Simulated scan of single mutants.
Amino acid sequence: MDMDAQDARRQTLNVFRIKMPDTKVVPVESGSKTLKDAVSEAMKDWVRNLATTHFLVGSCFGPHPIPTVIRD
């Protein structure tokens, strides 16, 4: 799981819980170290490892109108 470096530091307890079922948390140190950079790195990793990786999104993100469509 990629997580932006700022959130990984702020959400130490959540990172601990994520790691419990043997999940690897990778703090993203590239770019501005934000959610946008974490999503970009996660998608790059997914494309490089299609045979062994599943990509699940737990947030509503993307260009308009995607967030509005999901919200409504």
Rank of each mutant, 00 (worst) to 15 (best):
D72W: 10
S30T: 09
A38H: 06
E41G: 01
V26N: 03
K36A: 12
V28C: 13
I18H: 06
D2C: 13
V47A: 08
V25M: 01
N14T: 11
A8K: 03
E41H: 13
V26E: 05
V57M: 15
L13H: 06
W46T: 11
M1H: 10
H64P: 04
V47K: 14
V39P: 01
C60L: 08
S40Q: 08
D37P: 00
D2Y: 13
P63L: 07
P27R: 02
T53Y: 04
R17C: 00
V39L: 15
V28F: 04
M3W: 04
T68Q: 14
M20C: 00
R9C: 08
K36V: 03
D2T: 08
R48T: 01
F16R: 07
V15C: 08
D45F: 10
T23A: 07
P65F: 09
K24I: 10
V47F: 09
P27V: 05
N14W: 06
D7I: 10
T12G: 07
V25A: 07
P21C: 02
D7A: 15
L35C: 02
E41A: 15
T23G: 04
L56P: 05
A8G: 10
M1K: 06
F61A: 09
R10N: 14
L35I: 05
N14E: 08
I18S: 00
S59W: 11
K44S: 10
S59P: 01
V26I: 14
P27N: 10
M20H: 03
R48A: 12
K44V: 11
M3Y: 02
P21Q: 04
E41T: 06
G31M: 09
E41R: 13
V39M: 04
K33I: 05
L35W: 03
S30V: 07
V69P: 03
L56M: 07
F16Y: 11
L13A: 15
V25I: 00
D4Q: 09
N49F: 00
T68K: 15
C60T: 13
R9Y: 02
R10Q: 09
M43Q: 12
R9F: 09
F61M: 03
F55H: 12
S40Y: 06
D45Q: 08
G58D: 13
V15F: 05
K44M: 07
K19T: 06
I70F: 15
V28S: 03
F55K: 12
W46C: 02
A5V: 05
D72V: 14
A51K: 06
V47L: 10
N49C: 05
E29P: 04
M3I: 15
D45V: 00
E29F: 12
D4T: 05
R17K: 01
V15Y: 02
D2W: 12
S40D: 09
P67I: 15
V39S: 10
H54V: 08
G31D: 11
V26S: 08
M3G: 08
G58S: 09
S30N: 12
P65W: 07
E41W: 03
S32Y: 02
M3K: 03
K24R: 10
L56E: 05
W46Q: 08
G31R: 03
L13E: 13
G58Q: 09
M1W: 06
R17I: 00
